[in-house]
Amino acid sequence: MEIVREPQTQAGDGAVDLRTGAQPADRLEVSRKGAPVVRLEGLSKRYGDNVVLDGVDLEVSAGEVVAMVGPSGAGKSTLLRCINLLEVPDAGTVTVAGQCVDAGKEVSAKDAMRLRRTAGMVFQSFNLFPHLTVLRNVSLAQERVLGRSRAEADARSMELLERVHLAGKADTYPSRSSGGQQQRIAIARALAMDPQVMLFDEPTSALDPEVGLEVLAVMRELAESGMTMIVVTHEIPFARDVSDRVVVMADGGIIEEGDPHQVINHPQHERSQRFLRAVTER
């Protein structure tokens, strides 16, 4: 694969270089322009004979919140992981913030890192670094990847920890926090890189329902601040009330997408009807 930096196209124009530490307020302004931040074209991925993604196209505009729902094995997580190259697609192109990755060409580790920087990832299992304090968890990559000084990074980290209401945990180790708190720290850690899009891979699936709510509340605030988000989730109320668009995936493809209320309340496709009935009528 090869990363081509498209000059003055897509989100490339207008997009403030968030790496220099643009504040959320700036980001909001950029987001309103609605240029595509993520564009997937003909994305395919297979493991042996198992086709996980079959030529998927998807475009997400700046400031848009997209909820991806669908049965397990539909390819939702794989799709998300292709966006920041945790999985390397077999075919198709991935464009994030103007940087394009073409499957089938060699991609250097450096280029992959550059693309990953633009996308923040939140995992189902949090994946905080257990040997580092909460503050170091949020600051480390800012220093190593963005080249911020320790003081700058820590200041930004504290700001973000306050935003997820966990500033008091800064000097503790992650194991001292509950699952919901750990996930909020993970959100702060991803935000600290000033990403142009946040990817959430079933962020509440490992949490009990009550604790999941506090994570959803933080995500809702984030959505309201204008962050571009792609959220793989089984939380149908969140998808309906917070997202701008719901995408239903099944068998490696997008079978239906559109206005959240429309898709969730009146799904057209038989497969989405079956799935949505299963999650809403339990």
Binding site: N84, M113, R117, M121, N127, F129, H131, L140, R144
Partner: peptide, 27 residues
């Protein structure tokens, strides 16, 4: 060391060396 630690390091854009020296190695 859980593979999620490598993934989280990758997702943050840390280099292989940084991931090994600062994240996976100490654990």
């Amino acid at each position: 060391v859980h593979s999620g630690q490598w993934e989280a390091s990758d997702a943050l854009g840390l280099s292989r060396t940084d991931s090994m020296v600062r994240i996976v190695g100490p654990q």
